[in-house]
Structure formats: structure tokens, C-alpha cells
């Protein structure tokens, strides 16, 4: 077990390192950051001074070493546009994103798993088909169209809910539903197929033959086994949540890091992008690492050899 954890941890570190290298190379490909900061050009002596100040006169490998050292010292760079530390900018906005993503994640799990169960247990009835059709729609319709439809209906026509910002609790409803739609659909679909797999197993027949109540058969024997693959899917949802929050935050003017990120792409503010990618990647890698370990704890049958 310890060996397994160590091995997985090593791979996680390696991935984060690969992200660091990739981001660094991408940053060098954008050319001279001074051109972005001072679009009108600089006198040669000032330019030379700034090159030395930012360490841009060194060779690329030397720059990489400095860059990694700066990261470890907590020095994540200065925004080219706003001229302040990018870490501060992210620190201001991450709360809003975490709240939105957390609510959506909870909502999608709370609805997704029971919906998937209905889809599997009542698959030949209208209810089962309806549930899976809704899940299918949630899966195939893009975030921004769901968002705009909700804004049109509940914001413009009915005037029930606000559609921009995050001032009150009412502001959470539309973005949370939008962001949860995809995740809900994917959780429901996976729960359904995994439960269907389990339902056709021999031990289900045995459980029924023993005369157990249907409730016990479903919840104790079927659900427990079918949730194992779903747990892995939950880990992968995090990457999906981040993808989605970039769109959803922009549509709903949500003051989170997704919107910050899109803004940085448009302004070509590379230090902001760089920090964002490293943060997001680290979060995803960390979550997947924890899911892997959780997986082994839930299901002792999985061999812990790498």
C-alpha cells in the first residue's frame, strides 16, 4: 500500500513538473514580455536595464531554474497589465469560484446518483426513459446555451432571478444549475451503466434467492458495488468543472478565477495565465491522486501493485 501511494505520488509530481516545463516553454514562445508591457517601445538603455531586472538576458535553461526557484519561494510573477502580484489576484477571486464549483458539484452528485439509479432500475418505464433523456440533453447541450436559455427564461421574461454577479444567495441559482448540468448528466449516465452491470451479476440472484428484501438487495448489494466506478468518475469531474466554470463565470459575470483567466487570454497577460494553469493542474492532479487512494480503500480487490 505504501509503495503504491509513493509510486502514485511520484507520478503526480512528474505530471506537475511536466506542466511547469510546458508552461515555461509556452511563455518563452510568446516572445519578449516587455513588448506586451510597453507596446510603444522603449529606449535601448532602459530596455537593457529591464531585461537584466527581469532576468531575460540569461540563457533559457538558466531562466527555467530561476523560474522554478521563484515558484518555490512563493514568487509567482507580476501581472503585465495590472502590475501587481498574480497570487493576490487569484487569492481575491478563488473564493467565488470554489463556492460556485462546490455548490454545483454537490447538486450534481445529489441528483446524478439517484437519477442514474432510476434510469437503471426503471429502465423499461417512462420514468427511466425521461430521466435518461434529461441526462442526455444535459450532456449534449453546451454550457453557454443552457446559461443563455436560463437567463432568457428566468431573468428576462419571468424576472424571478438575477443573472449577473454574486451579490446574494439568489445569484447562485442560475450559474450553479448551469455548471451542474453537464456533471449531473455524466454522473447519471455512469451510475446507470455501472448499476446495470452489477444487476446482471450472479450474486444479485443469490441475494434475491436468499429472500432478502428488495430494498436491501438494491442498496446493500447493488449500489455499494456499482458506486466504485462512479467514485473514479467523480475525480474526473473536477477537470470538467474547471472547463465549465471558465464559460459559466464569463456568461454570468461571476467574479471568479475562470473569468480572470479568460480576461488574461484576451489581454495576453502571460504571468496570470501561467499561474492559473499551474494552480488548476495541481488541483486536478491532487484530486486524482486522492481518488486513486480512496479507490483502493473502498475496493480491496484492486491490486495495489503499480
Amino acid at each position: 500500500m505504501l509503495k503504491f501511494i509513493g509510486w502514485r505520488f511520484g507520478r503526480a509530481l512528474l505530471t506537475v513538473f511536466a506542466v511547469l516545463v510546458a508552461v515555461f516553454l509556452a511563455a518563452r514562445l510568446t516572445g519578449n514580455p516587455l513588448d506586451v508591457m510597453y507596446p510603444d517601445g522603449l529606449p535601448p538603455d532602459q530596455e537593457q536595464r529591464l531585461l537584466v531586472q527581469y532576468g531575460l538576458d540569461k540563457t533559457v535553461p538558466e531562466q527555467f531554474v530561476n523560474y522554478v526557484r521563484d515558484l518555490f519561494q512563493g514568487n509567482f510573477g507580476i501581472s503585465l497589465r495590472e502590475k501587481r502580484p498574480v497570487a493576490d489576484m487569484y487569492a481575491e477571486d478563488i473564493g467565488a469560484t470554489l463556492k460556485l464549483a462546490g455548490c454545483s458539484f454537490l447538486l450534481s452528485v445529489i441528483f446524478g446518483i439517484p437519477m442514474g439509479m432510476i434510469g437503471a432500475l426503471k429502465r423499461r418505464t417512462g420514468a427511466g426513459r425521461l430521466v435518461m433523456s434529461v441526462a442526455f440533453l444535459g450532456y449534449a447541450v453546451p454550457h453557454f446555451i443552457i446559461a443563455l436559455s436560463l437567463i432568457l427564461i428566468f431573468g428576462f421574461y419571468l424576472h424571478w432571478l438575477p443573472s449577473t454577479g454574486n451579490a446574494t444567495i439568489w445569484h447562485y441559482i442560475l450559474p450553479t444549475i448551469t455548471l451542474a448540468a453537464h456533471r449531473f448528466a455524466s454522473i447519471a449516465r455512469h451510475t446507470r451503466s455501472s448499476l446495470l452491470d452489477v444487476l446482471s451479476q450472479d450474486f444479485m440472484r443469490t441475494a434475491r434467492a436468499k429472500g432478502l428484501e428488495e430494498r436491501v438487495v438494491i442498496f446493500k448489494h447493488a449500489m455499494r458495488n456499482s458506486l466504485i466506478p462512479v467514485v473514479t468518475i467523480l475525480g474526473l469531474q473536477i477537470a470538467g468543472l474547471i472547463n465549465g466554470s471558465i464559460i459559466v463565470e464569463t456568461v454570468f459575470s461571476w467574479p471568479g478565477i475562470g473569468r480572470l483567466f479568460v480576461g488574461a487570454v484576451m489581454k495576453r497577460d502571460f504571468p496570470v495565465l501561467q499561474f492559473g494553469v499551474i494552480c488548476f493542474a495541481a488541483i486536478v492532479v491532487l484530486v486524482n491522486f486522492m481518488v486513486d487512494i480512496l479507490y483502493v480503500i473502498i475496493d480491496p480487490r484492486i491490486r495495489t501493485e503499480a
Binding site: T15, A239, V265, L273, V277, V284
Partner: peptide, 16 residues
């Protein structure tokens, strides 16, 4: 690597 980094980020950085 591709699986562990949200793909939208790769594309956005590529565009930048």
C-alpha cells in the same frame, strides 16, 4: 498529462 490538465486551459494558453 493530457488527461490531467483541463483541456480548455491548454487551448486558452495556445490561443494566448
Amino acid at each position: 498529462f493530457q488527461l490531467s490538465v483541463p483541456f480548455m486551459l491548454i487551448v486558452l494558453v495556445g490561443i494566448a
